[in-house]
Structures are given as structure tokens and as C-alpha cells.
């Protein structure tokens, strides 16, 4: 699974993207954040912020349930616009 951190989140995460392989199926966005952030409480807090939108496989997920297969996820902070 490829994880993208655009905008200010790349500063928080210390990188623009990372590769992580989920060991088990992720049931929720909270599971996803826990897997991505690991022990980094600062990143976990940033990713959990209500202004952050989660994009999965380049689409906005319908509801809270995650798809069985996640190839790519992006945590999008509020847009600056063009």
C-alpha cells in the first residue's frame, strides 16, 4: 500500500509518501490511521483531524467501510486551490 501525504502533512510525516504492507484487513479509517502512523502520535493526531480527507485508490470512499484491497491512500489537508 502506497501512502501519500500532500501539503503540510508531508512536513508532519517527514516524507511525501511511504510504502507499508498491511498484515491484516483494515476495517476502518481509524485502523488505517493507526497502521500508517504507528507510534508517531503527532502524525496520528494530524491524520485524525476532521479537516483531513482520506482518498483511497484515488477515489473518495463511500461511507466508513474500507475496500478489501487498498493499493493507495492519500491523506488530503484542506486544499489551497489553484
Amino acid at each position: 500500500m502506497r501512502v501519500i501525504f500532500p501539503g503540510y502533512l508531508k512536513d508532519t510525516a517527514g516524507r511525501i509518501e511511504l510504502e507499508t504492507i498491511p498484515e491484516t484487513r483494515l476495517e476502518s479509517v481509524d485502523d488505517l490511521i493507526a497502521r500508517v502512523a504507528g507510534d508517531n502520535t503527532c502524525l496520528s493526531g494530524a491524520l485524525s483531524h476532521p479537516s483531513i480527507h482520506v482518498i483511497i485508490n484515488k477515489s473518495i470512499p463511500a461511507g466508513d467501510e474500507l475496500p478489501d484491497r487498498i493499493d493507495e491512500v492519500a491523506f488530503m489537508p484542506p486544499l489551497s486551490g489553484g
Binding site: 503540510y8 486544499l79 486551490g81 489553484g82
Partner: peptide, 11 residues
């Protein structure tokens, strides 16, 4: 709409 909805982040 580009100003508000296009996925860009400016620094």
C-alpha cells in the same frame, strides 16, 4: 473552481 476545488497545496 480551480481556486477552490483543484487538489493543490501551496506553500
Amino acid at each position: 473552481h480551480l481556486k477552490t476545488s483543484a487538489p493543490f497545496w501551496k506553500k
